[in-house]
Computed example of a mutant assay.
Amino acid sequence: MSIRSLMKPMTLPSFLIDNAKISNTAITPEIRLYLGKGYGRGFYLAPYYRYTKFKAETVKVEYDDDAGDPQVLTMGGDITGSSFGLMLGAQWPIGKHFVIDWWIIGGHVGSGSGKIEGETTQTLSANEQAQVLDVIEEFDLPFIDEEFETNSNGASVKMNGGWGGIRAFGLSIGFHF
């Protein structure tokens, strides 16, 4: 991967934004290490692990068949990520049973992979496959290696590479027993 590919802005293709239904599940267990004022008071460091799963449905790829009529290939699939991170925050008690928790900043890095694919009910010609390939090749994310494939039955995009994110500013009020 070149420096140039890392510096390009992330843009999602219009076929993904316009049509796709995307859902997400994330599980993030963390441990808090309080710095100085005892358990549940003051600043803390919170190492954490995050598992994330994205599910994409109804990703519609439009192309023209050999007769010039518009056609749609519907694709879908899953992308999962696994990462480790560290967050800085602070917590203060309010009275006997309430706390204010401030997530100041955090970040996580790891790896992810997935596959989005679709099958047609009709056989795709070489020209139709080339059109579908041109559309799905718009799916280009930084830090991710993509493998694009079309055949007479449909298309697929396999992804594998870096995964990460930022946890920036959160404020919550908690109740403890």
Results as ranks from 00 to 15, higher is better:
Thr80Trp: 06
Lys96Glu: 07
Gly110Ser: 08
Val72Gly: 05
Glu138Tyr: 12
Ser83Cys: 13
Gln131Tyr: 06
His97Arg: 09
Gly81Ala: 09
Leu88Asn: 08
Asp69Arg: 01
Phe43Arg: 00
Asp64His: 13
Ile105Phe: 13
Gly107Leu: 09
Asp69Ile: 00
Ser111Gln: 13
Ile100Ser: 04
Tyr48Ile: 07
Asp140Tyr: 05
Ile136Met: 04
Ala67Cys: 01
Lys115Pro: 00
Thr52Lys: 14
Ser111Glu: 14
Ser113Ala: 12
Ile79Val: 15
Leu73Ala: 04
Ser111Phe: 15
Ala126Pro: 02
Trp92Leu: 07
Asp64Asn: 15
Tyr48Glu: 10
Ile105Val: 14
Asp101His: 05
Pro142Gln: 14
Arg50Asp: 08
Ser125Pro: 12
Ile105Trp: 11
Gly38Phe: 03
Gly81Met: 05
Thr120Ala: 09
Gln71Ala: 12
Gly76Tyr: 01
Asp65Thr: 02
Gln129Arg: 08
Gln131Leu: 06
Tyr39Ile: 06
Asp66Asn: 11
Gly112Trp: 02
Thr120Pro: 00
Glu119Ala: 11
Ile94Gln: 04
Thr74Leu: 02
Trp103Gln: 05
His97Gly: 00
Ala46Arg: 07
Gly112Tyr: 03
Asp65Phe: 02
Val61Thr: 03
Glu137Met: 11
Gly107Phe: 11
Pro70Gln: 12
Pro70Lys: 10
Asp78Ser: 10
Thr123Arg: 01
Phe84Trp: 14
Gly114Ser: 12
Gly42Met: 08
Gly89Pro: 07
Ala67Trp: 07
Glu128Met: 05
Gly110Met: 11
Phe139Tyr: 15
Ser111Trp: 12
Gly85Val: 10
Tyr63His: 09
Lys96Gly: 00
Thr80Met: 12
Leu141Tyr: 10
Gly110Ile: 11
Gly77Lys: 05
Glu119Val: 04
Ile116Cys: 06
Val109Leu: 13
Leu86Gly: 13
Met87Arg: 14
Pro142Leu: 14
Phe139Trp: 15
Phe139Gln: 09
Val109Tyr: 13
Trp102Gly: 02
Phe84Cys: 08
Pro93Asn: 08
Leu88Val: 15
Ala67Phe: 11
Tyr48Met: 12
Lys96Leu: 01
Glu128Thr: 05
Ser82Lys: 13
Met75Val: 02
Asp101Ser: 08
Ala126Gly: 08
Pro47Glu: 12
Leu88Ser: 07
Gly38His: 05
Gln129Ala: 04
Lys96Trp: 00
Leu124Gln: 01
Trp92Ile: 05
Val99Gly: 04
His108Glu: 14
Lys60Val: 07
Lys115Tyr: 03
Gln71Val: 02
Asp101Glu: 07
